[in-house]
Measured scan of single mutants.
Amino acid sequence: TETREFDNEEEARKEAERLRRKGQDVQIRKKGNRWELRRT
């Protein structure tokens, strides 16, 4: 599992969408005042 953190939700969602188009399974969750993007 690979995780990346983003400062805002929009960036996290854009990156998640990009990875999903490549066929990756991605989850986003709020972590304090940041957003965590998890690739499984």
Rank of each mutant, 00 (worst) to 15 (best):
A12Y: 01
Q27N: 07
F6P: 01
T1H: 12
K22N: 13
V26Q: 01
I28N: 01
A16L: 10
E11F: 03
T40L: 13
E9D: 02
T40N: 10
I28M: 05
E2D: 11
N8S: 14
T1A: 13
R29L: 13
D25A: 11
N8A: 03
Q24V: 15
K14I: 11
R18P: 00
R39G: 15
E9R: 07
E10L: 10
K30I: 03
E36V: 07
K30G: 03
R13M: 13
V26G: 02
E2L: 13
R18V: 08
K30C: 07
R29G: 05
T40K: 09
T3S: 11
Q27G: 05
R39V: 15
K22F: 12
E2R: 11
E15K: 02
F6H: 01
R34C: 13
R38W: 10
Q24P: 01
R39I: 15
K14Y: 10
E5D: 09
W35N: 05
E2K: 10
K14P: 00
D25H: 14
R18N: 09
F6E: 00
E11A: 08
Q27L: 09
R21V: 09
W35L: 03
R18Y: 08
K22D: 13
D25G: 07
Q24L: 14
N8V: 05
R29W: 06
K30S: 05
R21I: 08
E5W: 15
E15Y: 07
K30V: 05
K30Y: 03
E17D: 12
R4P: 05
A16N: 01
L37T: 11
R34K: 10
K22E: 14
A12D: 00
R39Y: 15
Q27W: 06
N33M: 04
R29H: 12
E15M: 08
D7M: 07
K22S: 13
A16Q: 08
F6W: 04
Q24F: 15
T3N: 10
R13E: 11
R18K: 10
R34Y: 10
R21S: 13
F6G: 01
E2T: 11
G23L: 02
E2I: 13
K30R: 09
E9L: 14
E2A: 12
G23A: 02
K14E: 13
R29A: 11
I28Y: 02
E5V: 14
I28F: 02
R38I: 15
L37C: 09
R34T: 03
F6C: 04
N8L: 06
R38P: 01
D7G: 05
R4A: 10
E11R: 03
R39E: 15
E36H: 02
T1E: 12
E5T: 12
R34M: 11
W35H: 04
I28S: 01
R39F: 15
